[in-house]
Amino acid sequence: MQLSGNTIFITGATSGIGRGLAEALHRLGNQVIISGRRKALLDEVTAANPGMQSIELDIASPESIKSVATWLMASHPKLNVLINNAGLMPFDNPGAVMDDAVSINILTTNLLGPIRMTSELIEHLKAQPAATIIHNTSVVAFMPIAGNAVYSAGKAALHSYTQSQRFALRDTPVKVVEIAPPWVNTDLIYKSGDPRAMPLDAYIEDTIRQLGTDEEEIIVDGIRELRNNPGAGEYTLIAGFNQMLVDDPIPVG
């Protein structure tokens, strides 16, 4: 992906990885448009980054997605990069009664949101000389966390969808890229300061570097073993990983 001269739309960009990517790409000379549900946070980010633009978006609402896509295509006809980053990560317990409303909200936000957002913009992107769709999945697409079971399953589904979409768009100007972050110290759940979490700045720096290549999957070195794990014996590593979290849990607060 060319790292400058793009018009880029990023969902869920008021904090964490989304904001980090938005600010890094803004500094590289791209027109960046960020989105999120809370105007006050959008205003805070754009004030800190003159020239960046924003629009309110509820990624769980098909109507909001359609309205924002219509505005984007009219206001930014050169839009050529979509970064589907918005997401939420509530805890759950698949060994007990599951809260159906919470599960639906996770999948609507984390899986249907990117599918719907991309669908609304796909013909516009295909009409550009060169375009990129970036889906933010997670290492948990390959190494599920038992305490975030629906989140993990949704990220695995988005990983699968990304590969199907990449094939479907193989003869178009649209490249499909997957970013699969490790455990990064952000406020997706809460900032724990846990030494096992990758610092946000380091993650953004390495991700931007890889985005400037022809890589289709952006995987930091620390999780390559986990990415390569799926296979007949994958449960052994998955169980060991989850037992580590049980024995040495993420500190709250």
Rank of each mutant, 00 (worst) to 15 (best):
G231V: 02
S64P: 04
T236S: 03
T207I: 00
L88W: 00
D187R: 10
F9C: 00
E215Y: 14
L200C: 02
A47Q: 12
A101L: 11
K155G: 01
Q2P: 12
L72H: 03
L88R: 04
G29L: 01
A127C: 05
K66C: 08
V45H: 00
A130T: 14
D58K: 04
P199V: 11
I104V: 15
N228T: 11
D99A: 03
H135Y: 06
M198K: 01
F167A: 09
E225N: 07
L226Y: 07
N136E: 06
L79K: 04
P114D: 14
A141L: 10
A127H: 12
A69G: 10
E123P: 09
T132L: 15
N49V: 10
P129C: 03
E56H: 06
L107V: 05
I115G: 05
G231M: 04
I10F: 10
R196I: 07
R224C: 10
P114M: 10
G240L: 11
P94G: 02
E63F: 12
A60H: 07
E205Q: 15
D58F: 09
T162R: 12
N49A: 12
N93E: 11
A74E: 02
D187F: 14
R38G: 01
W71D: 13
V139A: 06
N242H: 00
A101P: 12
G193A: 09
I59V: 13
K191N: 14
R27F: 02
M89S: 06
A22W: 04
K126G: 13
T236D: 13
S61R: 06
T236G: 11
V220S: 14
I122D: 07
P144S: 07
T207P: 03
G147P: 07
N228H: 06
D92K: 11
K66F: 01
A149V: 03
Q163F: 10
V184E: 05
D187E: 11
I189Y: 01
D248G: 14
L41T: 03
G147W: 06
I134T: 01
A96R: 13
I83F: 13
M98C: 10
E234K: 09
N185R: 03
L125P: 12
S152P: 05
I218W: 04
S192K: 08
A157G: 00
D206P: 14
M52E: 15
K126V: 06
L200H: 00
G36S: 03
S152I: 02
V140E: 10
Q243G: 08
L42F: 11
A232P: 14
D92T: 00
D100W: 14
P251Q: 15
K39D: 01
N148D: 04
G29S: 07
F142W: 10
R196D: 07
V45E: 07
